[in-house]
Design a protein around this nucleic acid. Structure first.
Lengths: 344, 344
DNA sequence: AAGTTTTGCTAAACCGATTTAGTTTTATAT
DNA sequence: ATATAAAACTAAATCGGTTTAGCAAAACTT
């Protein structure tokens, strides 16, 4: 009835009649290096197999200081964008012999601090973090205490911390150019109230492109609160559509776009006749909506894989001072929601 | 440059000039029990705070045999249904002082075995598993070796393993009744090729309801292969719509429904005029589709929260022999995709 | 005043692995 | 025959906590 105790190194050693040291050496493949007689090595390996021994990683890690655990902090694992990242991180981590511990910060600074503490105290070898607004100091502190660390999806340009993210400027540059080419002029943008660089870059990409096209007078940026998106989105879209007579809207994140679509549906706004729409990141909703929604595709596979690779490099080679900066290229997937040509 | 070592219990002890034992006792709130002078206790707590001490959980766990880690094995964390569960599991686990390690089995038996081994060797205190087809023996073995274990979303009726899942029979019963009430008779069902109980229950719910309504002659079940869903779905729907002149289709999972909608869109099938559709589990796609899709809502919050609660109970009280069986009640969310009344 | 109890604290064992520093035995060199 | 080297293995320290057993000093009995 009691939980059977696991076979320990000592059990194997006793059964063969040798010291735990010898067993440890043999099972770690260092038999030759330590000049263990090969018959002895075989005997030990056979016994370990027969007894179905597997090392207690906790003990190993206490000694070695490594857990082969990676901590992943996203804002919300139930957000499909981040769960997609999580899956890729998991796959790459597994390939490299790591297991992933995940946590959701809910874009909250306090949670972020707490989660980092918890993950570090669990002994994770390194962290992959989607940093939230205001977390720059924490991230700096973490980096200065030489914790292996890679930021993903977002980054702090002032910090020497490695990151893997999208070329956000180019994303909205692509989007805005596309809309302008389609003949739209009064193009607005809906983002979040945040100081985070990824959003600011997206805004700059839009502004610069509008200005370069001589459409500076149409520049309009609405920013909603992270915590109150649904409520604020309605009024924001009402203003843009009904007051400002905007022709097209660029949503700066996947969630904003989905929330926006809910509102536009409620408002009975016809897309793209009344309003052209561009979203961010692939989502089944965009493909199944009528009309299909144009969106910016991130090379998630690349972004997430690189993050893990960089992190594991840091863990193994201690190249903590090297700042790996990876900006991956966005791609515009054109749907029917941003086209004047399809009308009529 | 070297990674700064973390403050250890010993460091705190030395700084105050007492033994590590005393510090451990005080910081674990056992000062009174061990008759530690209250001034001393305060001094220790103050020092620990000032030195920003946090215990090395690896060491603590090596001694105590507990890691406060829960392993969660789903089929795919990037599937929004499972990432939603993951989030709830995470929240509840955090409340109870646990951290979650997640893994994706991809519905593969080999992966499942491997993941269980890895998670156990990481020292997880217990496992929450979405078992895949064919994993009954592994699960039985795990249970017999007294590993704290709870199945979620799916279960094996022949095993004495605790689980938390939907009342699947009732889900399709509700769905089928609803369609019949709406006046549909030729109602088909699309599921997976699997021996898993949750799917079989859903099929039984449909069959029994059809038979009870005297519509037995219309019973039609199409089963697609898990690995080849997209390709098979097209031909399945083609047969149902064009050959069998089916009036309504019930999709047995969220993914099937989404894949089905892609196909129906390609086929230019009008919903609900040409075909009524009912999906499974909430999804933004269902709400934003035109028409909105009727679906079965699972009380995910309840299901996932219970799973964690049951597991932690097992971990703490060792009630491994108790089989907690939780069937949560489904709810039908009626959209416009299953209604004859709305036509014209 | 001698014995008992309570108070306040510590030494040492322990968890299960890895690693360093030896030790013993056998082989080779001088 | 004696010193040196190599081979084959082990004892003990270590990681950082928790826990058990126990010690010394103060307080209390009678």
């Amino acid at each position: 009835m009691a939980k059977e105790k696991r076979i320990s190194l000592k059990d194997v050693a006793n059964s063969v009649g040798v010291s735990p040291t010898l067993v440890s050496i043999v099972l770690n493949g260092k038999a030759k290096q330590y000049r263990i007689a090969s018959e002895m090595a075989e005997k030990v390996i056979k016994a370990a197999m027969e007894m179905n021994y597997s090392p207690n990683l906790i003990a190993r890690n206490l000694r070695g200081g490594k857990t082969q655990l990676i901590g992943l902090i996203v804002t919300d694992i139930s957000n499909p964008f981040y769960s997609a990242i999580a899956r890729i991180v998991e796959n790459r981590a597994n390939e490299l012999g790591y297991t992933v511990v995940f946590s959701s910060s809910d874009e909250d600074l306090g949670n972020t601090k707490k989660l980092i503490d918890v993950l570090l105290s669990k002994g994770v070898d390194g962290l992959i973090i989607v940093p939230c607004d205001g977390s720059e100091d924490i991230i700096r502190g973490l980096h200065e205490s030489n914790t292996p660390l890679v930021l993903i999806d977002r980054n702090f340009p002032n910090l020497d911390v490695s990151f893997s993210c999208l070329n956000n400027y180019k994303a909205t540059e692509l989007t805005t150019k596309h809309l302008i080419e389609q003949g739209y002029e009064n193009i607005a943008l809906v983002g979040y109230k945040t100081g985070m660089n990824h959003i600011l870059d997206r805004i700059r990409g839009y502004e610069d492109t509008m200005n370069a096209a001589g459409l500076g007078k149409y520049i309009q940026e609405k920013k909603v609160n992270l915590m109150n998106t649904k409520v604020e989105m309605s009024s924001v879209l009402d203003v843009l559509v009904n007051k400002k007579k905007v022709e097209a809207v660029i949503f700066l994140t996947n969630m904003l776009a989905v929330t926006g679509l809910y509102c536009l549906k409620d408002m009975n706004v016809k897309i793209p006749e009344d309003l052209a729409v561009v979203g961010f990141n692939r989502n089944d909703v965009f493909n199944l909506f009528s009309p299909t929604i144009t969106y910016i595709r991130q090379p998630l596979e690349l972004i997430a894989t690189q993050a893990v690779t960089i992190l594991v490099d840091k863990i193994n080679h201690g190249e903590l001072e090297i700042k790996a900066m990876t900006y991956s290229e966005p791609q515009l997937v054109v749907g029917a929601s941003s086209s004047k040509k399809d009308i009529g």
